[in-house]
């Protein structure tokens, strides 16, 4: 993988809120077909990093490129270059149906500039009904086993909402998919479904950045893992090495625990609880 050109590359990413440093000089890289796991405790800066890559927030400094093209500006511009994301707290229009929410991911890019918005509004006024986008969206729904597109998104369970967000992101045909805690609140079926999607996207040669608390689950899935602690990257490498690394012990259990018990089980019992929103 090393000789392949990188899909996504970022360096010197910094983000601060007032006096609090959320990201401090973070570098990130992602190769085609690679799954990168982003782990760390609450407040480590995982979501901030995803936000700064996707453009939901803007970093104070740093350079990002996607397939060699500079990633900057608002999220919509980055989406057009091939980024798609899900949110830690699902952002779905509750009053719209599942089908309409899925369609949003498919059609939003067709409303990229002001004249295309006007063009689309005229088109939408005169041609109502099933479009080719609806067919694509239905195929995505089938792939993700999302049924009943006529339900309102507000009536879904949290797990279903996460699946729907993944489906919406897939509609964008992304080159890099950013998944912010896609498993939290999902049942076993939902987790399996999302894992299937991740594998499919990987086979297409696209990249995935996966954020989660659950280090065990992430490390079983990903090719490489990045451990964040208070805005710093403290480990970047092989998942198995990461779990055994002293950095991991220190970040999750503190230096004291590391000294007290070197063989500490890496998965605390309350890990499951953290997934309950």
């Amino acid at each position: 993988m090393a000789d392949q050109p990188l899909l996504l590359e970022g360096s010197g990413l910094k983000k601060r809120y007032g006096g609090v440093v959320a990201l401090s000089d973070v570098s990130i890289r992602l190769a085609p077909g690679e799954i990168l796991g982003l782990v760390g405790p609450n407040g480590a800066g995982k979501t901030t990093l995803v936000d700064c890559i996707s453009g939901t927030q803007s970093a104070n400094s740093g350079v990002l490129t996607l397939k060699g093209a500079r990633l900057s500006g608002p999220a919509s511009r980055r989406a057009k270059l091939g980024l798609a994301r899900t949110f830690q707290y699902p952002q779905l229009a509750q009053d719209l149906t599942v089908g309409e929410n899925l369609l949003l991911g498919r059609v939003a890019m067709q409303h990229g500039s002001w004249w295309r918005m006007i063009l689309q509004s005229i088109r939408g006024t005169f041609w109502v009904g099933r479009s080719s986008d609806a067919t694509v969206v239905e195929a995505i729904a089938e792939e993700l086993q999302i049924t009943r597109l006529d339900r309102l998104a507000g009536d879904l369970t949290l797990g279903e909402q996460r699946l729907l967000e993944v489906g919406r992101a897939l509609g964008q045909d992304p080159v890099v998919l950013l998944l912010d805690e896609p498993f939290a609140g999902s049942d076993a079926n939902g987790v399996a479904g999302i894992i299937d999607v991740i594998r499919t996207v990987q086979r297409r040669g696209h990249g995935i950045i996966l954020v989660d608390h659950n280090v065990d689950l992430v490390s079983s899935l990903v090719d490489r893992i990045m451990l964040l602690d208070r805005g710093h990257v403290v480990f970047d490498g092989d998942p198995a090495q990461c779990i055994a690394s002293p950095e991991m012990q220190r970040v999750y259990f503190g230096a004291a625990a590391l000294e007290a018990d070197a063989d500490f089980e890496t998965r605390p019992d309350d890990e499951v609880l953290r997934h309950v929103p």
Binding site: P74, S76, A79, R85, L92, L96, N101, L104, G105, G112
Partner: peptide
């Protein structure tokens, strides 16, 4: 969608 979840609409490609 923009009314309820502007950040999602922006992230999906509409300014």
């Amino acid at each position: 969608s923009m009314r309820e979840v502007p950040s999602a609409v922006e992230a999906a490609g509409t300014r």
